[in-house]
Nucleic acid binder design. Structure first.
Lengths: 151, 151
DNA sequence: GAATATTAATTCGACATCGAACCATCGGTC
DNA sequence: GACCGATGGTTCGATGTCGAATTAATATTC
């Protein structure tokens, strides 16, 4: 939390904001996902949630949505398949693609779990007013989509 | 980015803010740490930075500062020791503690690297004004230190 | 239509990460 | 001074994560 670094004011301001940003992201995630049962990990929850709200997706789409590597998704889906929450199916039109779908068990599992996580996140954000949440979202959006024009 | 979930307004607002928070944290970290040479990972950089700015620390202190598990720190320090950037030393007063210190090589390495990362983070945050950075930090701080009073 | 390039997924090795079990050390108490 | 609980590190198994190499399938080009 303390800054033990001598830089310009711009650097100190940016580093302080960055540290707080990271701490907030980590601690909100840790607290709000404490409701996850031990049967699923955070990464697996992310896949199930994407499938619930967007329908069946192929592995590349999942990797894109979740900002993970392809090799990573292969493993996560492997583990979800082992526990019977999703299934793989080759796309007959283009046999390179493999579509991942929720099983009946997976659908009822994530349908029941997601509202609990949503409520938990909402509870965490309740320390901010609606306007503050909007401001936070706006600032984060500017940061996240920064064109990052290299000088 | 789109919300495919029907909840209360409070839930939708919170989830939107949460998604933007996570995306910002991930993308700023990814872009600003792209300057890291391939010899060190992000986790290793975190340890080196802590040692540079706070001096020698024992493993438990490192785990606390970086919010990582003890077992995790053992491995990260193992790898840093292999590449000769840090050393372990048992504390003679209390032989349970193991103090981790930068080697000469490690000190010059991180001393040279850190300013580059700091400049990169500053560059990423330059899309926000100083006041906006302060606001963002303040909102994140409220979120991160939320007492999370369970209802 | 056969050679080539592109794309999707998997595999693999290295590192990260957690949590639980384990081991060593210290600080009591009796 | 021997038991006993607490504390700090390590080990271990499972999962996650990346990036590079590989494989399978499709698209393109001549």
């Amino acid at each position: 939390m303390e800054m033990h670094y001598q830089g310009t004011k711009a650097e100190i301001d940016a580093l302080n904001a960055y540290i707080k940003l990271m701490r907030a992201a980590e601690s909100v995630t840790a607290r709000s996902h404490a409701v996850l049962p031990k049967e699923v990990t955070l990464a697996q929850f992310g896949v199930l949630e994407a499938l619930l709200h967007r329908g069946p997706l192929c592995l590349g789409e999942l990797a894109g949505k979740l900002l993970k590597s392809g090799g990573n998704l292969t493993l996560i889906v492997d583990n979800l398949e082992k526990t019977g929450l999703v299934t793989r199916a080759r796309n007959p039109d283009d046999r390179r693609f493999i579509t991942v779908s929720l099983t009946k068990k997976g659908h009822s599992f994530i349908s029941e779990l997601f509202p609990k996580v949503a409520a938990s996140i909402t509870h965490e954000f309740a320390t901010l007013s609606s306007a503050e949440q909007f401001t936070l979202g706006w600032l984060c959006r500017k940061l996240g989509t920064s064109p990052s024009a290299k000088p």
